[in-house]
Amino acid sequence: MRSDMLVSVLSDLSGTSADIEAAGVISTDGLMMASVLPNSMDEDRVGAMSAAMLSLGDRTAQELARGELEQVLIKGDTGYVLMTHAGKEAVLTVMAKPNAKLGLIFLDVKRAAGSIAELL
C-alpha cells in the first residue's frame, strides 16, 4: 500500500517534466523502496550508488562546515543525477536529460521529497 503511494508520487514527479528520465526512493542503507526506472536500469545499482553518494555528501558538508546537506547534483555528458533527502530514512534520486531546466526540476524534486517524507 505505502509503496503504491510512493510510486504515485514518483509518477507525478516524472509527469511534471519530460526532462525527468527516472526516479526512485531509496532507503539510506541503499534498498530501493519504490521506483519509476527504465528497464535498462538496475534498481540495486541505482540504490547502492544513491545511498553512497548521499552519505559522502553528508560527510563532506559536515567536514567542510557547509551546514546541513540539501542535495547532491552530478552532471555527466548524457545527463544529471540529483539526490536529496526525503525524510531521515530515505533518499529521492532523479535522473534528468542533459538539457533539463534544472530550476524547475529542483522545485519539483523538493515538493516530491516533502510528500515522500510525509508518507514515510
Rank of each mutant, 00 (worst) to 15 (best):
Y80N: 07
E63S: 11
I105Q: 06
T16I: 02
A34H: 06
N39P: 15
A112G: 07
M49W: 02
A65P: 06
D42A: 05
D58M: 05
M32G: 08
L56K: 12
M1Y: 02
F106P: 05
A65H: 14
T16A: 11
L102D: 05
D108N: 14
Y80P: 01
V81P: 02
R59H: 09
E68P: 13
V81R: 07
M53H: 13
G57C: 10
I105Y: 04
L10M: 12
R111P: 01
T84V: 03
L10K: 11
M41P: 12
A48R: 09
K75H: 05
A90W: 02
K88H: 10
R2P: 14
V7E: 15
A86S: 12
L54A: 03
I105L: 13
P98H: 09
T93S: 15
I74P: 03
M33K: 10
R66P: 04
T84W: 01
K110D: 08
M1R: 10
L107C: 04
R45M: 00
A96K: 04
A65D: 11
T84E: 03
F106S: 10
G67T: 04
A18E: 14
V46F: 06
A18Y: 04
L64F: 11
P98N: 09
G57R: 09
D108E: 11
L120E: 11
S27M: 08
L119H: 12
R45L: 01
D4M: 02
G76Y: 02
L107D: 00
E70C: 02
T16P: 01
D4E: 14
I116R: 09
S27Q: 11
A23G: 12
R111E: 00
L64T: 15
K110W: 00
L64Y: 07
R66D: 12
S3D: 14
M33Q: 14
V9C: 04
G47P: 11
V109F: 01
A112C: 05
S40N: 11
A100S: 10
A61V: 06
S17G: 05
F106E: 11
M41V: 06
M95C: 14
M53G: 08
V9E: 07
S55E: 07
L104S: 13
G47C: 03
L92K: 14
T60G: 10
T28R: 15
A18T: 12
T78Y: 06
A112F: 05
D12F: 00
L31D: 14
A90R: 15
M32P: 09
A86Y: 01
L56W: 01
G114S: 09
V7A: 15
M32A: 09
E89W: 04
E68H: 13
L119K: 12
R66K: 14
A52N: 13
D12C: 01
I74Q: 06
A23Y: 03
V36D: 15
L102F: 03
